[in-house]
Computed example of a mutant assay.
Amino acid sequence: MLLELVGDHRNVHMVEDDGDRKWSYFPKTEIEKAREGRLMEVVDERLEGRADEKQVTTMVHVALWCV
Rank of each mutant, 00 (worst) to 15 (best):
E36G: 08
T57V: 13
K28G: 14
D52L: 12
V60H: 04
K54F: 13
D44Q: 11
R38C: 13
E41M: 10
F26N: 05
Y25N: 11
N11C: 12
E41F: 10
K33W: 00
E4Q: 07
L5G: 08
R10G: 07
K54A: 15
L3Q: 01
R35V: 13
E53N: 06
H13S: 06
E30N: 14
V43W: 00
A51I: 03
D8V: 01
D20F: 14
G49S: 06
D18Y: 04
R38W: 09
E36I: 12
L64F: 01
T57A: 13
A34G: 06
E41K: 05
G7E: 01
M14T: 07
E16G: 02
H9R: 09
H61R: 10
L2V: 06
V42N: 00
K54D: 15
V43D: 00
V6D: 00
V62N: 08
V42Q: 00
E53T: 06
L47Y: 13
L2A: 06
G37T: 08
M1H: 07
V67Y: 10
L2F: 04
S24H: 13
K33T: 05
V42E: 00
D52V: 14
F26H: 07
H9Y: 11
V6H: 01
V60C: 03
L47P: 08
H9P: 05
V6A: 01
I31E: 11
H13P: 00
P27W: 01
A34S: 08
E32L: 10
E45R: 13
L3D: 02
E48W: 06
V12P: 02
T58P: 03
F26W: 15
E32K: 14
M1K: 10
L5W: 09
V6W: 02
R10W: 10
P27R: 02
L5K: 09
T58Q: 10
D17W: 11
R46V: 07
E16Y: 09
F26V: 14
L47D: 09
K33H: 10
R46L: 05
V6C: 01
T29V: 13
C66H: 10
C66Y: 10
H13I: 06
Y25L: 07
